[in-house]
Design a protein around this nucleic acid. Structure first.
Lengths: 136, 136
DNA sequence: GTAGCTGCAAACTCTTTGCAACTCT
DNA sequence: AGAGTTGCAAAGAGTTTGCAGCTAC
């Protein structure tokens, strides 16, 4: 999702496009990783030092509720965020902390099948793999 | 895993079988749900009111490190625990908070395949489905 | 003009930890 | 005896919130 699109989506949802908000959106769109609030805050500060941590928290939570960003809670004790792209899952490198994205068609089908068998309508789901790189 | 087995496993690992520890183990073994620390604490208190929250935290963490219990971090802001049984996954009912366990052979195979393709040795993983019950 | 947004600081929740006393083995 | 364990209270991390002032629309 491009910055322009994101801003439009926010406006449509009734959000005011304020300075802090624009900066945060820009940081999120440009992020190629899965930054934590601390990391987002640092990147935002580099552009506009007046923005507060509270605003970063409020903004990412609002965006999450609007489904414009996705909040991830890996087993680290804090949340990470990314702008919504295609649906994918994560392999977390337990040594380096690297997060590798992957998609898998079979998995998407399988998860629907499992939910159906349990009598549930699927709203959200996530598969996290924790692994160690095989040396070659 | 039975209480007896768990206690033996703890002793083998060099843990002393103290009063608080025994009570916590008993509560964990008898739990048929996935209790949070608060819930474990309440159940332990009902048996022995002198046990502290700190001890519950220390104990479940120790047991988790020994792989005698599994710590789950669903998207709720706190951890849940259960004694180790066969490997399974969870469907979380977003309306009631109920946690339904399920196993799936295809999934186990698929996750290994994915890890291999990414060049990783799988250490841990979890699939969480969040859904809403289909009325019938 | 006004509803919504912001910064600040305080508060909150969950969890961890330092320490002196205590207890299994 | 001695290492491990405990309760207590304080501290820690991450996150949320009340409020008065500010800003986009």
């Amino acid at each position: 999702m491009k910055l322009q699109e994101l801003e439009t989506a926010c406006s449509k949802s009734g959000l005011k496009m304020t300075g802090p908000r624009k900066t945060i959106l820009k940081v999120l769109v440009e992020a190629e990783d899965h930054p934590s609030v601390d990391e987002i805050y640092a990147r935002v500060k580099a552009v506009d030092p007046s923005v507060s941590m509270a605003t970063v928290y409020r903004t990412v939570n609002t965006l999450d509720e609007l489904n414009l960003v996705t909040k991830h809670e890996f087993k680290e004790g804090f949340a990470r965020f990314e702008t919504n792209t295609d649906h994918h899952h994560h392999m977390i490198d337990v040594d380096s902390g690297d997060v590798i994205e992957f998609t898998n068609v079979e998995l998407e089908a399988l998860k629907e099948k499992i939910a159906e068998e349990l009598g549930y309508e699927l709203i959200d789901h996530n598969l996290e793999l924790y692994g160690r790189k095989i040396k070659d």
